[in-house]
Amino acid sequence: NRHQFAPGTFSGVLQCLVCDKTLLGKESLQCSNCNANVHKGCKDAAPACT
C-alpha cells in the first residue's frame, strides 16, 4: 500500500516514523490513510502504509 502524504497539520511535537527525530509542522508530511508522520526528506524511506 502507498502512503497519501499531505502537509502535516498538527499541534505539539511528534517524532518522524523513519528517523525518530522531532517533526516541526512546516517540514512534516502526514499520510491521510494511516496518519504516519514523516519529514519531507524521509518520505521515500517510510515503511508500507497500513
Rank of each mutant, 00 (worst) to 15 (best):
N1H: 03
N1L: 03
R2N: 15
R2I: 15
H3L: 01
H3Q: 02
H3K: 04
H3G: 03
H3S: 05
H3A: 03
Q4Y: 12
Q4E: 10
F5P: 03
F5Q: 05
A6L: 15
A6Q: 15
A6H: 10
A6P: 02
G8C: 07
T9A: 13
T9K: 07
T9Y: 02
F10M: 14
F10P: 09
S11W: 03
S11R: 06
S11N: 15
S11F: 05
S11I: 06
G12T: 04
V13Q: 15
V13E: 15
V13M: 14
V13R: 14
V13N: 15
V13P: 14
L14K: 11
L14E: 10
Q15K: 15
Q15F: 05
C16M: 00
C16K: 01
C16A: 00
L17C: 07
L17I: 09
L17P: 07
V18I: 09
V18S: 05
V18D: 04
V18W: 03
V18A: 08
V18H: 04
C19I: 00
C19Q: 00
C19W: 00
D20H: 05
D20K: 13
D20G: 03
D20E: 10
K21S: 08
T22N: 14
T22D: 15
T22S: 10
L23A: 13
L24A: 12
G25W: 03
G25S: 13
G25V: 14
G25N: 07
K26Y: 06
E27H: 00
E27Q: 03
S28P: 03
S28R: 04
Q30L: 03
C31L: 01
C31D: 07
C31A: 01
C31H: 01
C31Q: 01
S32N: 12
S32L: 07
S32I: 06
S32M: 07
S32T: 11
S32E: 12
S32A: 12
N33Y: 11
N33A: 12
C34P: 01
N35Y: 04
N35F: 08
N35Q: 04
N35C: 08
N35S: 11
A36L: 08
N37C: 09
V38I: 11
V38C: 15
V38Y: 04
H39N: 01
H39I: 01
K40R: 10
K40Y: 12
G41F: 08
G41I: 11
G41N: 10
G41V: 11
C42D: 03
C42V: 02
C42I: 01
C42E: 07
C42H: 00
K43Q: 09
K43T: 11
D44Q: 07
D44S: 14
A45G: 13
A45I: 15
A45E: 15
A46G: 13
A46C: 07
A46D: 06
A46M: 13
P47L: 10
P47D: 08
P47E: 10
P47W: 09
A48G: 12
A48R: 09
A48Q: 08
A48W: 06
C49P: 03
C49S: 05
T50W: 15
T50E: 15
